[in-house]
Design a protein around this nucleic acid. Structure first.
Length: 578
DNA sequence: CTAGGGTTAG
């Protein structure tokens, strides 16, 4: 009786002072001898939003011989705190003093997943094997998730294969891990395998599978999954429907995304609104994005940091400088402090519009240490506006910060080249050779007949590469007649004009578009060619695709690293502002 | 030695 009563007392603690009172009462009344009540109080103190982890630690320190559950409460507290790595230090001291159980491992693994400490996960794995806990599906799923979140998908997959007991959450954890770990294709295969093996899928499965489609731009599979979602009434689940909106957006069909948004059957969450605003924003439809943002402002749901980021992104891609800066300047008054991403957006917005000095001043005025991305953004803007002085400031900062990105060197070199400062061009190129410059290879892909085809620059790995290269020659011939001139100024090397043109014409995105054109020949004009590129689209490709869209009467949709370009009748949805 | 642990969206 007394225990049940005391339990209730613990549950009613909603402030730190309550907890302190209950604690001293327990100590004087001798309740603290009950290890159950003790760990309950510790846990409440350590993890509930009303609690205070440092108080829990104080209480813990006064326990003469803490038991497993006392340790577990503290580790669980740290695992969900802002310093999850401390959970692992506690775990290590616990090992030498007390028996570890499945819960201990579970909480510590949760911390591993959050703290991204890849070295600890295998240690926990060994501990689980040593204690014979591998038949615990919950624990193994937590372990699998920790491997996934640390990017070790090989171990995650191996564990999945070896698990003696698996349930839907185990499948979900691996699908989600693959989807967010650049192996979205395998995530979809695993999703399909669930059906074959008769594993009942749930809302979490669908969210993860839709996420895989978003990454890949796999619209065929995405539509199928959306169909499944509707058939199983899972569209009433907000998270699933949000993932559906995102899937349509990232596959290039923002209008379909809006249909889902418009016909929402359950209550929208702030994420629903944000996803839709961001969707229109990355498609360059700033006015629709901002209209929804305004509706959100007058809604009972409060806009959060992502809402502002989405609105700023809309302004950024449309060049709405004044509007964007006013949103940026007002957000703090509405209770949302700008973070690094907001700064990134506004610096890009100002820089692209030629307000380089203002962009620079914003970076310098920041109270937090600016991320290198901000300087890269300023450098990019300096190149567009041919401002050597600002480019040098930005690139000097990047070198100071130890950022060796090949794109940054290329930009600086281009700026010098545009001014005919060949000595400086040579110096930058020397730097590129002496420093180990990281080069991210350009990669484009396209879905055709349900499979994804990948292309690198000048790639000849595709089985139909000869036809693709012939198609490119045909395109070049036709667009020249339409007035196309190769943008050879974009090529860095001092080689002949013809060689420069050759360096441009087999860019990965051109290979993918050429292949796409081949695949839609004879198919209704309304079927667009959709391509995804890992980096930003190249300027020459942008010109070429405008011509193609006109001559071949075919819409081309390119998703680059930051936004969509929709080429139609000779122009692009970005209005050449990017 | 009573309960407590896992997978999901912008």
């Amino acid at each position: 009786m007394a225990r049940v009563y005391m339990e209730r007392v613990i549950e009613r603690c909603v402030t730190v002072s309550h907890m302190k009172q209950v604690h001293s009462h327990f100590v004087t009344a001798g309740h603290f001898q009950s290890s159950y009540l003790r760990s309950r109080l510790l846990e409440r103190c350590a993890i509930s939003p009303f609690g205070d982890l440092s108080l829990a630690v104080q209480i813990f320190r006064r326990i003469p011989k803490p038991l497993t559950n006392d340790w577990n409460a503290i580790i669980r507290g740290y695992a969900s705190s802002s310093q999850p790595s401390l959970a692992f230090s506690w775990y290590r001291s616990m090992l030498s003093q007390c028996r570890v159980d499945a819960l201990t491992c579970s909480f510590t693994l949760k911390a591993c997943a959050r703290a991204l400490c890849s070295s600890a996960t295998p240690q926990l794995h060994a501990q689980i094997n040593r204690r014979g806990l591998f038949a615990d599906a919950l624990l193994c799923t937590t372990l699998l998730d920790a491997y996934s979140k640390n990017g070790d998908l090989i171990c995650a997959h191996k564990l999945f294969d070896e698990m003696p007991v698996r349930d839907v959450a185990s499948w979900n954890a691996l699908i989600a891990g693959l989807a967010s770990g650049n192996r979205a294709h395998e995530a979809l295969e695993l999703y399909k395998r669930m059906e074959l093996e008769g594993v009942q899928r749930n809302e979490v499965t669908l969210v993860a599978a839709l996420g895989a489609c978003s990454h890949l731009g796999a619209i065929k599979e995405g539509e199928k999954i959306h169909g499944y979602v509707k058939d199983s009434n899972l569209d009433r689940n907000v998270i699933v429907s949000n993932a559906t909106i995102d899937m349509y957006t990232k596959c290039g069909f923002v209008d379909k995304a809006f249909q889902v948004f418009h016909q929402f059957t359950s209550n929208k969450s702030v994420v629903t609104w944000n996803t839709m605003i961001m969707g229109f924003a990355v498609h360059g439809e700033a006015h629709k994005a901002l209209e929804i943002f305004h509706k959100l402002e007058h809604n009972t749901i409060k806009p959060d940091d992502v809402s502002y980021l989405a609105a700023l992104t809309a302004c950024r891609h449309a060049g709405l400088v004044e509007y964007g800066t006013s949103i940026f300047n007002n957000m703090a008054c509405n209770g949302v402090e700008p973070n690094m991403k907001h700064y990134g957006c506004v610096v890009d917005l100002l820089g692209r519009a030629g307000k380089l000095r203002e962009a620079h001043d914003i970076i310098c005025s920041m109270s937090m240490v600016p991320d290198p991305i901000l300087w890269q953004s300023l450098l990019g803007a300096s190149e567009i506006h041919k401002n050597v002085e600002m480019a040098e400031i930005a690139s000097k900062k990047l070198i100071e910060l130890g950022v060796n990105n090949d794109g940054d060197f290329v930009l600086l070199s281009n700026i010098y080249a545009a001014q005919g400062r060949w000595k400086d061009v040579g110096r930058v190129r020397n730097d590129m050779e002496t420093k180990q410059v990281k080069k991210i290879p350009g990669l484009s892909y396209i879905e055709a007949e349900g499979t994804i085809h990948k292309f690198y620059n000048s790639d000849k790995r595709h089985e139909q590469w000869r036809e693709i290269y012939e198609k490119i020659d045909e395109i070049r011939f036709k667009i020249r007649e339409d007035g196309y001139v190769a943008q050879t100024g974009l090529v860095l090397h001092d080689i002949g004009e013809e060689e420069k043109e050759n360096a441009l014409c087999y860019h990965s995105e051109k290979l993918a578009v050429a292949y796409g054109l081949m695949m839609v020949e004879g198919v209704g004009e309304e079927t667009p060619v959709r391509v995804i590129k890992n980096l930003r689209i190249c300027g020459d490709c942008h010109v070429v695709f405008k011509h193609i869209s006109k001559i071949y009467k075919r819409e081309i949709i390119v998703r680059d690293r930051v936004r969509f370009h929709r080429f139609k009748d000779g122009s692009c949805s970005c209005n050449d502002y990017w």
